[in-house]
């Protein structure tokens, strides 16, 4: 056995694959998102009633939740990969990881709440 061999932590393959899968999903969803919310209300501002009406459709919460989940996973996993590049210290890696998980949990909570609220808003 090679005495120089030092295994640190396994893993890496699944996050790597999921990062790419979420990237492809995001590519489609983000372009759709931009077209619907940033481009398509040509010449005027996004209208409250319009948004409320759109948010009331059955596909809205599903699509938005999928979007939220993939965006959060892709973003936080990407950030973790950057931090991993520069953090050798075990303690700091744990701190970063915990921090990212908590940020993810909070944002997922706030985001889900927003989607539910928008979906259940009364149409005037």
């Amino acid at each position: 056995m090679n005495k120089d061999f030092k295994q640190t932590s396994r893993s890496g393959s699944l996050p790597w694959l999921l990062q790419r899968i979420s990237a492809v999903i995001l590519f489609v969803l983000l372009l759709l998102h931009f077209i619907t919310y940033h481009f398509l209300s040509k010449g005027r501002a996004v209208n409250y009633q319009e948004i409320v009406a759109k948010a009331g459709s059955w596909w809205f919460p599903l699509l938005q939740f999928a979007f939220l989940l993939t965006a959060l996973y892709h973003g936080l996993n990407g950030l973790w990969s950057v931090l991993e590049d520069y953090t050798a210290n075990k303690f700091w890696r744990l701190v970063w990881y915990g921090l990212l998980l908590s940020v993810g949990a909070v944002l997922l909570f706030v985001g889900t709440l927003t989607i539910i609220k928008l979906y259940t808003l009364p149409v005037a």
Partner: peptide, 12 residues
């Protein structure tokens, strides 16, 4: 593959 599949392996 076990050795390469490490945080300091191919994923960097």
């Amino acid at each position: 593959i076990e050795i390469v599949n490490d945080k300091n392996g191919v994923w960097r």
